[in-house]
Design a protein around this nucleic acid. Sequence first.
DNA 1: CGTGGATATCTCGATGTCAAGACAGGTAAG
DNA 2: CTTACCTGTCTTGACATCGAGATATCCACG
Lengths: 166, 166
Amino acid sequence: MEDEVDRLVEAWHAERPDLDVEPLHVLSRVSRLARHLDRARRAVFVAHGMESWEFDVLTALRRAGPPYELSPGRLLRATLVTSGTMTNRIDRLESTGLVRRSPDPQDKRGVLVRLTDAGRTRVDAAFADLVDRERELLGSLSPGDRRTLASLLRSLLVPFDTDPAA
Amino acid sequence: MEDEVDRLVEAWHAERPDLDVEPLHVLSRVSRLARHLDRARRAVFVAHGMESWEFDVLTALRRAGPPYELSPGRLLRATLVTSGTMTNRIDRLESTGLVRRSPDPQDKRGVLVRLTDAGRTRVDAAFADLVDRERELLGSLSPGDRRTLASLLRSLLVPFDTDPAA
DNA sequence: CGTGGATATCTCGATGTCAAGACAGGTAAG
DNA sequence: CTTACCTGTCTTGACATCGAGATATCCACG
């Protein structure tokens, strides 16, 4: 069975026979798969009237555990966006009642963003559906294959997650 | 060795012990790795005074082989962007002299976008560097591991690349 | 032929993101 | 204290992308 990356590598090999393009077999697949995954996730979120960026922020809060509260700074580091973007996102989530801002009693510069009950309900439902959908996407792999894949991906990821040079 | 996804899965398990979040081990890693990969690629491109979107378009033309010419329609399908985006990209690439637009003699609605000599030189140099950099990123994996990984990723990708439901 | 629908490209307005900087509050050294 | 630097959040302006729609051309069928 062939995929688009096989065709892509073949085309490069024909055009640049001087180069060893073997790395593309792994890394182009990672990028393309991530792209398809984004679309699939978006489709799950629309069923919950939610967008990807909302899910990202709400899950970060949800994962934090009770009282489901983090500073904007921690949120932007968790979701890998800039501070301006995070301010904008919190504004909109607050206007739809999914989170609430309050001053940080420990630090007068700071703010705490807390998931409302409505926000928690929404994100829990969306997350459950997302995991189900992702399980379907992995349907073609045996449990052993999944473990192998996870492990190989981890070894690619570790350098990024340890080095601050990311 | 642990990565961020191990911590993420652990956090979810603590908060939602009712859910089987095993799919995250594979698919969250795919997304996160793609994100890091984007940054790494961007770093390569800046060394060539190029941005990611430029590289995407130029490589699509380069892969097509002589005369390095494709229609905007084929380009937008190859790069998965909308038509408005592709018009804008071609405009900018044309203004920097990396591509040239000409009317399609076969179809008066159509346009053909061709890589200039300057464009070809630039993209060839950037591509060679990119493959080198990607080879480094795969350094922690044996050749056998790389083949295994490529093969497992392919089986996840095939459904997307065959079904039109992407 | 001619008509209706499909196709190719471009235009336009809205929007989410980023980068840089503003500003208030914290923090440590003298 | 107080000065100088650091940190946390928000503001602003620029920009790439998207989605919807406009226009022109092609093509298959009657």
